[in-house]
Design a protein around this nucleic acid. Structure first.
Lengths: 332, 332
DNA sequence: CTCGTTTTTTGAAACGATTCAATGCTCTGG
DNA sequence: CCAGAGCATTGAATCGTTTCAAAAAACGAG
């Protein structure tokens, strides 16, 4: 049906081996022949059949990136970093969004296993480490992103959330605030837990400082608003003079509730620090001080680790932990 | 290296043809044999090699979705719709994000052509119709999303943005507002142009109504804020009593500027309608009245069209246009 | 002009599945 | 007991590349 390498060979008057060499190792072929073959390719509109190539060559040039929430700006930034790195290394990245479904996550793992992708970048949703071990045995390496490997079997790229919580609250303490509120939850989420631990650590190092925890059922704008209203309703003596939110969505919700009330100003009455430094943080009513994670760099790094592991499967797993960074704006 | 269908056949004591039938046409094989083969598959940890399958069978079960901004909630919703539909039709969807780069868009088209994907869902960024025509001749159909096909060669799924503009402004007029402001730009973007045309149409149908256009350089929160400050600074007599924003980001920016000024209230002094109904619209300071596009449904529909076209290439292109819907909240 | 070396080209053998005509087997009815 | 129908199974051919040992061609030195 479609033109194959054989047709190209006939058209150019060379053997199929030569055409293949033009495609994959041009240096081995004389310049004149290269030109002739390329002309034939152009004339016939030949497109290499990747399935056949992969079947024979064994390895694909595709890397899969599996995330559980493609809508989260953090992941889209990370994806962009991975794509950039991939294109310089000669790989292509395809994205799979599992929409927080175990079933779909496992379905995509099946798909990519059948496709024999070169490697998998994954921010796991369900419990997939066993599955990834099997894939590794099968010759498909993985690198975890935004999550460290529990059994040390995989390389991972993540951020030190304890440090993030620490610098956020240290910043608030440094401005003389003493009654700190931590807003976030549920406590089961590793990221939330770590950020809170960092906050507790900072408070415990400063005499006279205290931390109150406001638990949320999710890290959303709505939950932030709910807590914000609670705080507005508190007696002035009880009320925190600074808030650290588990992420920027929660922080934006808090901000809205405080501003709308008309009773409290940010940062004069209450200072506020968020987490993630999403685009919206800059353009909030009061531009938000936040903790930035190097999302694109994380994607880039993860891809490089994966690429290294793909070329040398013996490589032992590396754990890379980035340090977050405080971005000071108007809210604290 | 890894186990092949041949190993499974040996283990189960059947021929390779039978193993293949178990995998693809279980009905043709006796139940006892199916069971025996499946046991062998399990014991050996066999995973079908998709490259070999595709090489022989000709067609892949993968559909590519190419978008130029994976961070836009509209596209992530659309992707979710497409994925849902795909899984019921037995396809898998992989995402490619071109990040508004012509070069990358064309690179992904190359990749998917080599991979012989079953079809392509694309929200084009650059000028790729010629490229898509070539792909079609090659046996790979495409369906355009959120953009109609200029040359009628492709099926498309989009939204009637003129109608969207019309119902938005009719709603404002219905509340007695007469001095309408349209905020959006640049005028070159098809979506912006159409929404504005709809607004003009509504105004022209109502005696005494007038439309002022506030041009923006991009549809962002920042630009919305900028215009919002301009409007706050206008003399009360000149000032619009209602605003229609080209999208929700602009609307949120406007809202922030108006609220922060403390001089104007929404919706009493100025009513406000946005477009897209993004998640943030609900949780804005004043919950935003907006125009909703059925993004997930659009993805679902596009995938079905593509699936139909994949099974019958003769099918003539269909143009499906959804009607947008007014979602009334507090801002107008 | 010849011999040895290097560069270029050749072509057949994989890769691992699917397909399909051919064969083997099991019933059923006469 | 046999012919014929209907299932189940077989296995060789095939898809379009890449690979690599071997052949051919080109080149240089003596």
């Amino acid at each position: 049906m479609s033109t194959s390498i054989k047709d190209v060979a006939a058209q150019a008057g060379v053997s199929v081996g030569t055409v293949s060499n033009v495609l994959n190792h041009p240096a081995r072929v004389s310049p004149a022949t290269v030109k002739r073959v390329q002309r034939a390719i152009g004339a016939l509109g030949f497109v290499r059949n990747d399935a056949a190539r992969q079947l024979r060559a064994g390895a694909s040039r595709t890397i899969a990136l599996i995330v559980f929430d493609a809508a989260n700006p953090f992941f889209t930034d990370l994806a962009r970093g991975a794509e950039d790195a991939a294109s310089t290394e000669g790989y292509s990245v395809v994205l799979a969004n599992t929409s927080e479904s175990d079933e779909r996550e496992s379905g995509y793992l099946d798909l990519f296993e059948e496709q024999r992708v070169r490697g998998i970048l994954i921010s796991p949703y369900g419990d997939v480490e066993d599955r990834l071990v099997a894939l590794k045995g099968f010759g498909i390496p993985s690198v975890l992103v935004d999550r460290v490997s529990e059994n040390e079997k995989f390389s991972s790229v993540s951020v030190d959330d304890v440090a993030g919580g620490l610098i956020a609250v240290e910043h608030l303490l440094g401005q003389g605030r003493r009654k700190i509120g931590f807003v976030g939850g549920p406590a089961g989420i590793p990221q939330v837990r770590d950020r809170r631990h960092g906050a507790e650590k900072a408070v415990s190092q400063t005499p006279g400082a205290a931390l109150t925890v406001f638990d949320t059922t999710a890290t959303t704008v709505l939950e932030g608003r709910r807590i914000g209203e609670v705080i507005v309703g508190m007696a002035p003596g009880e009320r925190p003079d600074a808030l650290f939110a588990a992420n920027d969505l929660v922080a934006l919700g808090l901000l809205q509730a405080l501003v709308v009330s008309g009773k409290l100003t940010v940062p004069d009455d209450i200072a506020l620090v968020g987490y993630d430094d999403i685009d919206f943080a800059t353009s909030a009513i009061v531009p938000l001080t936040s903790i930035r994670q190097p999302s694109a760099l994380m994607g880039e790094t993860a891809l490089k680790l994966l690429s290294d592991e793909a070329s040398d499967p013996q490589l032992k797993p590396q754990r890379i932990i980035f340090q977050p960074e405080l971005v000071i704006r108007a809210s604290a």
